[in-house]
Every structure is written in structure tokens, then in C-alpha cells.
């Protein structure tokens, strides 16, 4: 109250760019009790320096961001933006307590991660990398890796910067905007595309070839593979995939599935069924 209100303490665009630049290193100090805490503190430091010239206040701000934190790293940019706006309010004497800031961070981190994980890791990365791999395997060579690297990072950087700016400008309004069901819709839409593309990928990129076992009829010799292709191409990969999903639902570890398929492949080859 009795602070000398000469100029309001405000984050410059440069400060925000520094925070943005650091936000990509958030997970480096991932540790078990407090998860991404040091990373979040690290990326807040340029803002802390600007907002709290006093050393004790700066230390307190740093300590507040060393509390437990964990979210999907790209969604962290939105939380960072909101946190920046709250810290700015607090530094200017508005009634924002340290506990308020922590509560907003904790409140956002779980729900946002739940939305962003299926979108980024579950849909966008599998689709983009499968597309890139198919380019590489069908003779486009280096174009495949380039498409993945550029496509991924453009989307990521644009999203991070947009989310951080939006969070900073809107502040706490973000929380109400997000509770209107936009996120659920977005997750559902991404899941639809993801499921669709996964369905389409299976017959294309699972290479299971039956050996030409010939079922000799009286007249026609029939290869088992062409019979299967007549019925439904990709039927065997489909059944194997659905079997794996079924086992995963029963909490079988992916490692055992890998081992099982490995043995199946070797056995199928040595018995002359697969090639």
C-alpha cells in the first residue's frame, strides 16, 4: 500500500521472449518427488528478475515456483502465460497471494495435460512421423526426416508462443474460457482423426507376408496370400493389432507383446509360413 507507485512493474516483450526461449528446457531436471519444479522455476527467472528487484522477494518468488509441478510440456506455455500475468499483478501490489498463484498452476496442470497428451503424443506425432517414415521408405529419402522435423517444430513453436501470449493477455479469464468445453471437443476431434489414421496405417505399414503355401485343388492352385488379399487385405495385421489392444487392456506390458511378436516372426519364418 505504501509502496511508491512510480511506474508499474511490467514485463517487456523481451522478457516474454526469454521465458519462451527457456520454456523448452523445462523437463531437463525432471525428478521424482517434485517432477518439473526446477524447470518451471528456471523459465520464470527472467520474469522474476524484472518484477522483483528486491533480492528477498525474488528468492520467495523462486521458492514458490520450486513447488511440485508437472504438465504436458507444451501446455505448460499456457500455464506460464497465466502465471506471468498473476506474478505481474502481485508485483504491482494487487491482492494476489503466493498461494493463489500455486493454486492456479496446480489447478490447470492436470486437466491441460489430460487434453494435450492425446493430441500431441497420441495423434500428431504418430501421424506426422508415420507419414514421414512412409515418405522416406517410398524413395523420397531425406524429405521424410525433414518433413517430420520441420512440421513438428513449426507446430510446436507456434503453439507455445501463441499459448503463452494468450495466457499472459487473458490472465485468469483463460480458466473460464477453457471450462466451456472447447478442450473436450478438441480432444474428441483429435481422437477421431487419430483412430481413423491408425486404422488406415495398419494395412499399409505392417508387413506380414504369408509364404506361398499352395492349397492344391484339383484344377487351380491357390496361394494363401492371394486368398487372404481377396478376402480382406491386411486382415492378419488387423487381427494382430486388435489382439495386442485386447492384451494391453488386460495390463499386459508392451515389452511382452514385443517379445511375443518377435518370437512369432522368427517361428513363422522358420516354419515356412511367413516370409
Amino acid at each position: 500500500m505504501t509502496e511508491k507507485n512510480e511506474t508499474p512493474r511490467q514485463l517487456t516483450l523481451t522478457d516474454q521472449l526469454w521465458v519462451f526461449g527457456r520454456s523448452g528446457w523445462e523437463q531437463a531436471a525432471w525428478n521424482y518427488p517434485r517432477l518439473q519444479n526446477l524447470g518451471f522455476c528456471y523459465l520464470m527467472i527472467p520474469a522474476i528478475r524484472r518484477l522483483y528487484p528486491d533480492k528477498t522477494e525474488a528468492g520467495q518468488a523462486a521458492a514458490r515456483h520450486l513447488e511440485l509441478f508437472n504438465t504436458m510440456p507444451y501446455m505448460q506455455s499456457l500455464i506460464t502465460g497465466v502465471t506471468l500475468s498473476l506474478e505481474e499483478d502481485r508485483a504491482n501490489g494487487k491482492p494476489v497471494s503466493s498461494a493463489d498463484i500455486s493454486a492456479v498452476k496446480i489447478g490447470m496442470m492436470g486437466s491441460l495435460a489430460g487434453v494435450a497428451d492425446p493430441i500431441w503424443w497420441g495423434t500428431w506425432r504418430p501421424i506426422l512421423s508415420a507419414f514421414a517414415a512412409s515418405l522416406a521408405l517410398s524413395g523420397f529419402g531425406i524429405v521424410g526426416p525433414l518433413v517430420f522435423f520441420i512440421g513438428w517444430n513449426l507446430a510446436r513453436l507456434a503453439f507455445r508462443w501463441g499459448a503463452q501470449r494468450w495466457g499472459y493477455r487473458q490472465g485468469l479469464k483463460v480458466v473460464t474460457a477453457l471450462s466451456s468445453g472447447v478442450l473436450q471437443k478438441l480432444t474428441l476431434g483429435a481422437s477421431i482423426v487419430g483412430m481413423f489414421v491408425m486404422g488406415a496405417i495398419i494395412p499399409r505399414w505392417t508387413r506380414v507376408k504369408l509364404a506361398p503355401i499352395v492349397a492344391t485343388n484339383h484344377h487351380a492352385a491357390l496361394s494363401l496370400q492371394s486368398l487372404m488379399d481377396q478376402l480382406l487385405p491386411g486382415l492378419i495385421p488387423l487381427l494382430l493389432t486388435l489382439g495386442c489392444v485386447w492384451l494391453l487392456r488386460r495390463h499386459v506390458k508392451p515389452l511382452w507383446l514385443l517379445l511375443g511378436l518377435f518370437i512369432l516372426g522368427l517361428a513363422g519364418y522358420s516354419l515356412g509360413i511367413l516370409r
Binding site: P118, P126, T241, C244, L248, R249, L261, F262
Partner: peptide, 17 residues
Amino acid sequence: VAAGLLVIVSFAIVINM
């Protein structure tokens, strides 16, 4: 043959998710 089959587990993980 075995390497070609391993991709199935990844597809299954994504679908399961």
C-alpha cells in the same frame, strides 16, 4: 519378418490410448 511385426505394438499402444 520379426522387425516387420514389431510395429503392431506401437499401433496398439496408440489405439489403446
